[in-house]
């Protein structure tokens, strides 16, 4: 009976993942390897191609600017018109930063819907659901991001664009420091060769984590976490019979992800303090008093 239970859970979580995420690893790999009938993504490798992408992929590269205050959801600032080339470059970097934010907001929304579909999640105290999302979404986001990355770049705009690693690295500090650690993580993580069914369970395990600060009912979250982690362990044994150490290796990645999120939160804080840019209210909520 236990085996049957875990198979049902695996199926439910995999289905929730396939239903709620616009991009998945199978889709991303088809695009990245050119094995798809859809047009090849637009390669973004400099400011010129970035601006071309902004015009042609406008629908999925929304670069809104967000008000700083909590009450200002949806308020827009208008950048002053500038002629100076350096300022134009700075504006483009800020717009790129906002594109990243829009993608993050979209993924957080998808992750919330995914979490709600994980059996047991919605039975938790509402405060605990908030806590689990607050601390889990960025770890989950960087896990999903790895699916869209190869050693040379990252798929963006729902597969319509491919932004090169070198271009991202060439941006002015602190923007240029933002993505490199994610590429390094992705290279190591992608070497595990997980598929979407494995990733679905891993992302569910990230979100349903019993040691997040401030949980009201730790034992209930731990019970949920235990059932997901057991399902993940059994699923990996069945799905990757030749790789018996995959489960412990995957669990080690949780520590890497936590470190990646801490570094990322510090960079975002630095950008918020020193740059003339703003943060989406949802992301403000997540980062506030995080670590």
């Amino acid at each position: 009976p236990m085996e049957a239970d875990h198979k049902i859970l695996v199926k439910q979580i995999h289905e929730a993942y396939m239903k709620n995420f616009n991009m998945n690893k199978a889709k991303a790999r088809l695009i990245l390897t050119g094995k798809t009938s859809t047009p090849q993504p637009l390669i973004i490798h400099d400011m010129e191609t970035f601006q071309l992408a902004e015009r042609t992929l406008a629908v999925h590269m929304v670069s809104g600017d967000y008000a700083e205050s909590d009450g200002g959801v949806g308020d827009r600032q208008v950048f002053p018109a500038v002629a100076c080339e350096e300022l134009e470059q700075r504006e483009a970097e800020a717009r790129l930063f906002h594109c990243c934010q829009s993608t993050s907001v979209e993924t957080v929304t998808e992750l919330t819907e995914f979490a709600k579909a994980v059996p047991g999640f919605q039975s938790l105290d509402l405060n605990d659901q908030v806590t689990l999302l607050k601390y889990g979404v960025y770890e989950a986001l960087f896990t999903l991001l790895a699916s869209c990355m190869n050693k040379d770049g990252l798929l963006v705009a729902r597969g319509g664009g491919f932004i090169t690693r070198e271009f991202l690295k060439s941006l002015r500090r602190p923007f240029g420091d933002m993505m490199e650690p994610k590429f390094q993580f992705a290279t190591r993580f992608n070497a595990l060769e997980l598929d979407d069914s494995d990733l679905a369970l891993f992302v569910a395990a990230i979100i349903c984590c019993g040691d997040r600060p401030g949980l009201v009912d730790v034992s209930l979250v731990e019970q949920l976490q235990e059932s997901i982690v057991q399902a993940l362990r059994l699923h990996l044994l069945a799905n990757h019979p030749d790789d018996t150490f995959l489960f412990p290796r995957l669990l080690q990645k949780l520590a890497d992800l936590r470190e990646l999120v801490t570094e990322h939160a510090q960079l975002v804080q630095e950008i918020k303090t020193n740059e003339d840019t703003s943060l989406h209210p949802l992301l403000q909520e997540i980062y506030r008093d995080m670590y």
Binding site: D70, T112, K116, P281
Partner: peptide, 21 residues
């Protein structure tokens, strides 16, 4: 927690996209 995480609460209770807010 609810006061500090209004949008997360809203997302948990319905599926309004924060992009559209």
């Amino acid at each position: 927690l609810k006061e500090k995480h209004k949008i997360l609460h809203q997302l948990l209770q319905n599926s309004t996209s924060p992009v559209d807010l």
